[in-house]
Simulated scan of single mutants.
Amino acid sequence: MATVDAAAEYVPYAPVDYPVYRETDPAQAVEGVSPDQFFESAYTPILQDMISHVVNEEGPVLDSVLARRIARAHGWVCTGARIRDRVDQVARAHFSSHDEEQLGTFFWPTHLPPEASPSFRRPGDDDSMRSLTEVCLQELAALVSEMQAKGHVADALIQAVAREAGVSKLAHAGRLRIEKAVRHCGE
């Protein structure tokens, strides 16, 4: 009768610990959300606290996403140019930013230097899915590097990055975004 050394074959399950991205509610950071006062200078400290909450929890975060999050917290369905400009003005006064051609500006949380390469944050739940255009190039490049380290190359690399990012159907624009991140890794 053959025996097997169970201890030698046992490989313990080690959960993978990935950074997670979750949407946050800026209204949780303040008391007194007031759509009527949004454009008043006296409201700037409340707006600043809301913006800080989103940028520090979700950042690097795209300017349009930040403006949308702030608008929704005020009960607005649409995010018009005046709202975007007001949010942008307050955010630029308090956070480092990085402009990406054709996308917009990403605001960086205070705990992460703008020259840092952030880890890719996978969606924490179904409500926290981001499109590839909502992920800064540095963060997407980190996912590319991770997939390259797992042996993915060429088209398999593109597909692996898309899958890990939660993209179920990769459109042409998404493919181009991933290819740009691959080039960024090579620089």
Rank of each mutant, 00 (worst) to 15 (best):
A67K: 00
A67E: 01
A67T: 01
R68W: 11
R68A: 13
R68S: 15
R68P: 03
R69C: 09
I70G: 02
I70N: 00
I70Q: 05
A71G: 07
A71R: 01
R72H: 10
A73E: 01
H74I: 03
H74R: 06
G75N: 08
V77W: 02
V77S: 11
C78M: 15
T79C: 15
G80A: 06
G80Y: 11
A81S: 10
R84C: 08
R84A: 12
R84K: 11
D85A: 14
R86C: 02
V87M: 05
V87G: 00
D88F: 09
D88I: 02
Q89H: 10
V90Y: 00
A91F: 02
R92A: 15
R92H: 11
A93W: 00
A93L: 06
A93F: 04
H94R: 12
F95L: 08
F95Q: 04
F95W: 04
S96C: 13
S97K: 07
H98Y: 14
D99M: 12
E100W: 12
E100P: 11
E101C: 08
E101G: 07
Q102N: 14
T105Q: 07
F106N: 00
F107G: 00
F107Q: 03
W108F: 15
P109L: 09
T110D: 14
T110V: 11
H111G: 09
H111V: 10
P113S: 13
P113A: 15
E115H: 15
E115Q: 10
E115M: 10
E115T: 11
A116H: 10
A116C: 13
A116G: 08
A116Y: 10
P118W: 09
P118N: 06
F120E: 00
F120V: 07
R121N: 06
R121Q: 13
G124T: 12
G124I: 12
D125I: 10
D125M: 08
D125F: 06
D125T: 08
D126E: 15
D126I: 09
D127R: 13
D127P: 01
D127T: 12
S128H: 03
M129P: 01
R130Q: 10
R130E: 07
S131Q: 09
S131W: 07
S131P: 04
S131Y: 07
T133H: 13
T133M: 13
E134T: 05
E134W: 03
V135R: 01
Q138R: 14
Q138I: 08
Q138N: 10
Q138S: 13
E139I: 14
E139Q: 14
L140M: 11
A142S: 14
L143P: 00
L143G: 02
L143F: 06
V144K: 00
V144Q: 00
S145N: 12
S145V: 06
S145A: 14
E146S: 15
E146K: 09
M147V: 04
M147Q: 15
M147A: 12
M147T: 06
Q148T: 08
Q148E: 15
A149F: 08
A149G: 09
A149V: 02
K150Y: 10
K150P: 03
G151L: 03
V153N: 04
V153P: 00
A154E: 15
A154P: 04
D155E: 13
A156S: 13
L157Q: 08
L157C: 11
